[in-house]
């Protein structure tokens, strides 16, 4: 599916989606509440069939957070990048996609561990790299660690 068609397709599910093309990938930014439905739709529809989630990560912006999903269809060969915009930095929450792609279970645990984004309905949401009693979320921009991070 060409990028223009894909744009139409996403707009038909989430009308408020915003689009941007960077680095050869089409990015679709959607509100976090709509993400799960869109993802499920794109995964299951015959014409899109995005069955391969090859990257899932979070980004901490000054006033909001995003969770970025890099998707590819192994049947059709097209790519799309979904970005779920989470408005709250203090209490970020989003629905899990681990019921759609199994690999998301680990990746979401990583994002939770390092960004503190809570994935609702995740089967086993615990810290994956850091200790259970670790304070703070290291990949956030306002994370302070006087001992280990040397400011330049």
């Amino acid at each position: 599916m060409e990028q223009e068609q894909l744009k139409e397709r996403i707009l038909s599910v989430v009308p408020e989606a915003e689009f941007e093309i960077t680095g050869g990938y089409m990015n679709a930014t959607v509100p976090s509440a709509k993400l799960h439905d869109l993802a499920k739709n794109l995964r299951e529809s015959e014409d899109t069939l995005f069955d391969y989630l090859f990257c899932l990560t979070g980004v901490d912006w000054p006033d909001h957070m995003t969770v970025v999903y890099h998707l590819k269809s192994t049947t059709h060969g097209h790519n799309v990048v979904l970005k779920a915009k989470i408005d709250s930095r203090e209490n970020p929450e989003i629905d899990t996609v681990s019921d759609i792609w199994q690999t998301a279970e680990f990746h979401e645990r990583e994002v939770f561990d390092l960004f503190g984004i809570i994935f609702r309905n995740h089967p086993d949401l615990r810290r994956i790299f850091l200790d259970d009693d670790w304070v703070g979320y290291p990949l956030r921009k306002d994370y302070v660690d006087k001992v280990n991070i040397i400011e330049l």
Binding site: F54, C55, T57, F106, H107
Partner: peptide, 13 residues
């Protein structure tokens, strides 16, 4: 922000 998508992490899952 820089993210490394490492193959081992997904394979381990």
């Amino acid at each position: 922000r820089l993210k490394f998508r490492s193959p081992g992490f997904s394979n381990l899952s």
